[in-house]
Design a protein around this nucleic acid. Structure first.
Ligand SMILES: [Mn+2]
Ligand SMILES: [Mn+2]
Length: 567
DNA sequence: ACCTCGCACCCAACT
DNA sequence: CGCGCGGCAG
DNA sequence: AGTTGGGTGCGACTGCCGCGC
């Protein structure tokens, strides 16, 4: 399905972006931004096209010969016009370093006239040319004369416009293309002219400030504790009401603090963790304290977590790490026994396939034929349960709620992972509850939404893994009370409980033959099986799900597979 | 896929 | 020469 | 020796082309 784009698609996309910003945010624009828009509007079409082409390419300096676009009638004339209007500089003063990056090795050595330089690696070549400061002006003139060089100007203004449009700087103009090519289909949601992500200029500036700090960050900084500290200190202080910015800033702080830990700067890491509320901040603090032999403080923090856990993972951490540490240092501790799921093992011939597939095939060839023949095993991991959940809450997810949607390329509402997602959609939640009150209702709703929304992006719905047949089977063979329990746990923390579901699901409407020699559940119509190959072990999120399964009588087990390597 | 998810592989500490 | 990587385009 | 916990690292429309080694 090769979809052709209009020859000037990129200019059209740029216009869509600027129109969107103009309609919603004219009151937040500063003078530079307003000038940018009005100057751009009076450019010739050729000039507009060339400028947008340059904007969407990497870097800000370009060689004339590398700008070849058939759909632009006269590139040189367009460039002159852009220069007159200050959109580009056709005679920029650039450092030798910058200029060298634009040319290939053979071009540089030929221009310099020293073939012996060919033996050097690219980075060595640059080093050697930059080494002699007295030769630099001469070399700049020499290399730069190989081609006309254009410097892109006012690109920061466009960054601000993109930020206003998307609400972030992670997305870019490729969203338009991917959508138009049919690679992405977004769900329908209402985006009226009043849907705004930003409400004050100060807020825009704070977000720009945040991305400015990220921009300064390079991979080398990860090895430099003082540099990391400097960067964290520069991050903006997000106001209480800007939840998105708070989330973003906090994530970066956690990441940098974690890196300070790796670099061995535990005190600094601790100090920055203390500035953060979100997990795993307190977990890391506790670990550091214990590492520093601050046993009392470390255990006290575990106690605090036990009293006010921010999420289940943090709670489980405090229970197990607290108990282990207390035992080791002979402190009293009220220990809670960790759940051990039923486990059994199986030896299979190694045919080079994924271990989950090997087990699925094994089940389909043996256990599945156990009774009437309606038994089947699917390798679904998170996809089945999340998809059924996602299809069932579709209307709630894309409902019009203030602040939830603000750009045309969202795959979910901005508050989807927030604690109060349900609270903010109470009436729809109550409707949803009636829809999941019986197997027939659930099945009807899920299959209907499958047809209605097929292919539309949704972080919970995995279109490639679910067929109506499977959905129907699952809705009927997993009892509605089990579905309600599964949904309930996902709703309590969508972000974290979307994952960790077992690899396989077995359906057996008439149960299984109890003679079958394994701890498989025999008296239920389905069961979930987590497969573990050699060397693998239950992940934390998998164990949390299994603990919950045990509490709610959801049939489950862990199957350890070893390979039979004998010929 | 608002930079994840599950697994593979490694290491250290414990039993 | 062939391979892997990254930029670019649609 | 074997187990357990913890850490890190890896992939992500596709297809083409120039570059570096
Ligand atoms: Mn798995
Ligand atoms: Mn598994």
């Amino acid at each position: 399905m090769a979809i052709e784009l209009e020859p000037e698609y990129y200019l059209d996309n740029f216009r869509q972006l600027t129109d969107f910003v103009t309609v919603r945010y004219s009151d937040l624009l500063d003078l530079d931004e307003a000038r940018f828009l009005s100057d751009f509007a009076v450019l010739s079409r050729d000039a507009q096209k060339l400028y947008v082409r340059m904007l969407t390419r990497k870097g800000d300096v370009f060689r004339r010969s590398k700008l070849q676009y058939a759909e632009i009638t006269d590139i040189d004339e367009a460039a002159r016009e852009l220069a007159r209007m200050d959109f580009i500089d056709t005679n920029p003063s650039l450092s030798l370093d910058t200029i060298l990056k634009l040319f290939s090795k053979p071009e540089i050595t030929a221009a310099v006239g020293d073939e012996s330089l060919n033996r050097l690696r690219r980075d060595e070549l640059e080093q050697s040319l930059l080494a002699d400061a007295t030769r630099i002006p001469e070399l700049i003139a020499c290399v730069a004369s190989l081609d006309e060089l254009f410097l892109l100007c006012r690109a920061q203004v466009f960054d601000t416009l993109k930020l206003l449009f998307f609400g972030n700087l992670r997305q870019d103009m490729t969203e338009f293309v991917l959508k138009d090519l049919g690679l992405y289909t977004f769900a329908e949601y209402s985006l009226d002219d009043e849907s705004r992500f930003f409400h004050h200029r100060d807020q825009v500036n704070a977000h720009l400030h945040y991305y400015g700090v990220l921009d300064q960050f390079t991979d080398d900084d990860l090895q430099d504790a003082s540099r990391l500290t400097e960067l964290i200190a520069q991050l903006p202080v997000a106001p209480q009401e800007d939840r998105v910015l708070r989330r973003r800033v906090e994530r970066v702080k956690l990441k940098f603090a974690r890196q300070l830990e790796r670099l061995g700067d535990l005190d600094l890491a601790l100090a920055w963790y203390r500035e953060c509320q979100t997990p795993p901040s307190r977990e890391r603090q506790s670990r550091i304290l214990i590492q520093q032999s601050e046993i009392e403080a470390g255990l006290a923090l575990c106690e605090t977590i036990l009293e006010t856990p921010r999420n289940e993972e943090e709670l489980v951490f405090a229970q197990s790490f607290g108990a282990r540490t207390a035992r080791k240092h002979k402190h009293p501790w009220r220990k809670i026994k960790a759940y051990k799921p039923p486990e059994y093992s199986l030896v299979l011939p190694n045919q080079g396939q994924r271990v989950e597939m090997a087990v699925q095939n094994y089940f389909n060839e043996s256990v599945a034929t156990d009774s009437a023949g309606d038994n089947t095993c699917y390798y679904v991991e998170n996809t089945l349960i999340n998809s059924v959940f996602g299809l069932s809450i579709w209307e709630m997810m894309f409902a019009s709620v203030p602040g939830a949607f603000f750009n045309p390329f969202q795959i979910m509402p901005s508050d989807f992972y927030e604690r109060d997602f349900v609270e903010c959609r109470k009436p729809l939640y109550e409707q949803w509850q009636t829809r999941v009150s019986s197997s027939d209702e659930l099945s009807r709703c899920v299959l209907q939404n499958y047809e209605r929304y097929y292919g539309q992006l949704n972080p919970l719905v995995f279109w490639g893994n679910i067929e109506p047949e499977l959905l129907k089977t699952a809705c009927h063979l997993i009892p509605i009370t089990d579905w309600q329990h599964l949904f309930q746990r996902i709703f309590t923390d969508i972000k974290h409980n979307r994952s960790g579901l077992p690899d396989l699901i077995l359906f057996h409407p008439d149960g299984l033959n109890p003679e079958f020699d394994s701890p498989l559940v025999t008296d239920r119509s389905y069961q979930l099986v987590e497969v573990k190959g050699p060397g693998d072990k239950l992940q934390k999120n998998q164990l949390r799900w299994m603990t919950y399964f045990a509490e709610h009588d959801i049939p489950h087990s862990v199957l350890n597979v070893t390979w039979d390597e004998s010929p």
